[in-house]
Computed example of a mutant assay.
Amino acid sequence: MYNAVLVPTDGSARSVAAARRAIDLAATYDATLYVLSVIDASDLGLWTAADIPVERVEASLRDAAEAAIDEVTSLAAAADVRCETAIRIGVPHREILDYTDEVGADIVVMATHGRTGLEHAILGSTTERIVRLSEVPVLTVHE
């Protein structure tokens, strides 16, 4: 049923819960798990001051992305699940959708933050955008 399972991660407890579900799916169907971490391009602008080199900020964000991926790959290895990883810089929902197409994912497994009301209206939701725009099924996991 599934040959390629994609799980985006930001290292949060919610994304680790989603990763556990994705690993279970991949193990059940003997699928490859694709783990993606997206460095939000807007974060580079928010944290860059005239006296802090962009490269240092980007390196810090990349280190966080690598740590998030490492956590998921460790869980996948413990479950004997094949795993491929990637880090992208850009607009998160666009990068996730592009990567979904690139790897031929059959399903995307994502965490939901459970935002409601004004917070949801102002901040929006990457998961909601993926649910609306993805051409493949999206499984949302609430921690």
Rank of each mutant, 00 (worst) to 15 (best):
M1W: 00
Y2H: 07
N3V: 08
V5M: 09
V7F: 05
T9Y: 01
T9A: 00
D10L: 05
A13R: 14
V16G: 01
A17H: 02
A18S: 04
A27K: 08
Y29D: 04
A31K: 02
A31H: 01
L33H: 05
Y34Q: 02
L36V: 12
V38A: 02
G45Y: 00
L46S: 08
T48V: 15
T48Y: 12
A50P: 08
D51I: 14
I52F: 07
P53N: 11
P53T: 13
V54K: 12
E55Y: 05
E55V: 11
L61S: 04
A64T: 05
A65L: 03
E66F: 00
I69V: 11
I69N: 02
I69M: 01
V72Q: 12
T73W: 03
T73N: 13
S74G: 13
L75C: 08
A76N: 06
A76I: 06
A77P: 11
V81E: 13
V81N: 08
R82V: 13
C83F: 05
E84H: 15
E84N: 14
A86K: 08
A86Y: 02
I87M: 07
I87K: 01
R88L: 04
I89K: 15
H93I: 00
H93L: 03
L97A: 08
L97W: 02
D98H: 04
Y99F: 15
D101Q: 15
E102Q: 15
E102M: 11
V103W: 07
G104V: 08
I107R: 03
A111G: 14
T112S: 01
T112Y: 00
G114V: 07
T116P: 07
E119L: 14
H120V: 00
G124P: 06
S125N: 13
T126Y: 04
T126R: 07
T127A: 10
E128G: 15
V131N: 04
L133R: 13
S134I: 03
P137N: 07
V138N: 06
L139N: 08
L139H: 09
V141H: 05
V141M: 09
V141S: 10
H142D: 09
E143R: 10
